[in-house]
């Protein structure tokens, strides 16, 4: 059976098409102004990538921040459940999932059957979310894509004492004025962000294996800082863009009537 998942996030829209348990195609696009257009566009692109027409899809599950706006879904599932399902599909040993999206961060605990037992969700504070990185990349005049590798290592160990985006940004400005190296500044920012996510994770009891998903998982600098902070090796999804994990989970859930 062919099913699809569509994850309408705050900054990107994602879609995945699967047949039973194998992935046929996926798509990621930047969110449009109108969420309905985002959903239509990402689904059209995904169908094109799969070389399929819409009527071949037996069920579509919608998820994400804008899920209510997706016009073509069979049903909706929470992001928590979708991310859990996607990560567990790749790593059946996963017990803790850290998902950092454009405007939120989630820590999800699973049992050995992949069932969600507990979670913590932050969308109240921009610290510890993708937005933190966006703002810092901007203030250093770098792109979001390049900051990960630039800040992955440091020559001089600097410290950013604030986790608040606004206060941390002020610290960045003074470090730039002191002519500190952008890579060193980024490295300090990644550690500050990792500490923030780590304290959110610590509000639950962490069990191995830990898997990181969401767009921020692609940032190698943050990923390594988080491993350091958590004091444990973290798995990521290697054969698939970790950003489409939620949509994959949705597609897997669509397999279950």
């Amino acid at each position: 059976m062919i099913t699809a998942g569509c994850d309408l996030g705050s900054t990107t829209a994602k879609a995945v098409i699967i047949e039973n348990k194998s992935i046929l195609a996926s798509a990621v696009i930047p969110a449009r102004l109108d969420p309905i257009v985002s959903a239509e566009d990402v689904m059209a692109l995904c169908l094109k990538n799969a070389g399929l027409s819409r009527d071949r899809i037996k069920a579509i599950v919608g998820t994400g921040y804008g899920q209510q706006q997706i016009p073509f879904v069979s049903r909706l599932e929470s992001e928590i459940v979708c991310h859990a399902r996607g990560a567990f599909f790749h790593h059946p040993t996963a017990r803790t999932i850290i998902d950092i999206g454009g405007q939120d961060s989630k820590v999800i605990k699973l049992d050995s059957n992949g069932k969600v037992v507990q979670y913590s969700y932050n969308d109240k504070c921009a610290a510890g979310t993708g937005r933190f990185l966006e703002i810092m990349a901007d203030s250093l005049n770098l792109s979001l894509e390049e900051i990960g590798s630039v800040g992955n290592t440091c020559k001089e160990r600097l410290n950013i004492s604030n986790q608040c985006v606004i206060f941390a940004e002020t610290e960045v400005v003074s470090l730039v004025n002191e002519e500190k190296d952008p890579g060193d500044i980024l490295n300090a920012l990644f550690r500050a962000m990792a500490n923030r996510v780590c304290s959110q994770a610590r509000s639950l009891t962490i069990e191995n294996d830990v898997v990181m998903t969401g767009g921020v998982a692609k940032n190698i600098g943050v990923f390594n800082a988080l491993c350091q902070s958590m004091g444990t090796a973290i798995k990521t999804i290697t054969d698939l863009d970790p950003q489409i994990n939620g949509a994959l989970g949705a597609a897997l859930l669509a397999q279950e009537a």
């Binding site: 405007q103 109240k124 504070c125 921009a126 937005r131 703002i135 608040c164 985006v165 606004i166």
Partner: peptide, 10 residues
């Protein structure tokens, strides 16, 4: 107006 979030950024 009503602001949905207390975070300065949001």
């Amino acid at each position: 107006i009503t602001l949905a979030s207390i975070c300065t950024v949001w």
